[in-house]
Computed example of a mutant assay.
Amino acid sequence: MGLLDRMAIATLPLVPTPVMRRLSARYIAGEHLTEAVTRLGELARNGYPGVLDLLGEGVDSEAEARQVAADYVAGAAALRAAGLAAYISIKPTHLGLLLSEELALELYTQVAEAIEPHGQFMRVEMEDHPTTDATLRVFARLCERFDHVGIVLQARLFRSLDDIAALPEKAVNVRIVKGIYLEPEKIAHTDADAIRDAYVECTRRLLDRGAFAALATHDDALAERCLREIQERSLDTSRYEFQVLLGVREPLWEHWKSAGHPVRVYVPYGPDWRAYSQRRLRKNPQIFWHVTRDIFGMPTSKKFEPVDDAQLAD
Rank of each mutant, 00 (worst) to 15 (best):
A63I: 01
A85K: 13
A70K: 06
L55V: 11
H94Q: 11
V59K: 02
L55A: 10
R66K: 14
A85Y: 02
A81P: 05
V73K: 14
S61H: 10
A82C: 08
A78T: 01
L55Y: 08
V59M: 07
A77H: 11
L95K: 03
A77I: 06
Y87M: 01
P92F: 00
E62T: 13
G83N: 06
I88L: 13
E62M: 06
G58F: 14
E62G: 05
A82R: 04
L95Q: 06
L95G: 00
G58H: 12
T93D: 12
L95C: 04
A76Q: 02
L52I: 09
G56A: 09
V68Y: 10
D53P: 03
V59N: 04
D71Q: 13
G50Q: 09
A69W: 06
H94I: 06
A81D: 15
A76E: 00
S89V: 02
I90M: 07
A65V: 00
P92W: 00
E64Y: 02
A76I: 00
Q67M: 12
D60T: 12
D71R: 09
V51N: 09
A86C: 13
A77F: 06
A69I: 09
A65W: 00
E57Q: 07
V68Q: 12
V73F: 00
E62C: 08
T93K: 00
L52M: 11
A74K: 14
L54H: 13
D71F: 08
D60K: 12
A78K: 02
Y87G: 10
H94K: 06
E57H: 05
A82L: 08
A69R: 11
L52V: 09
A65M: 07
A70I: 01
A86Y: 03
D60G: 12
A77M: 08
S89K: 12
Q67A: 14
L54I: 14
A77E: 15
K91E: 11
G56K: 10
V68H: 14
R80H: 00
K91A: 05
I90K: 07
Y87N: 15
S61K: 07
P92T: 11
G56N: 10
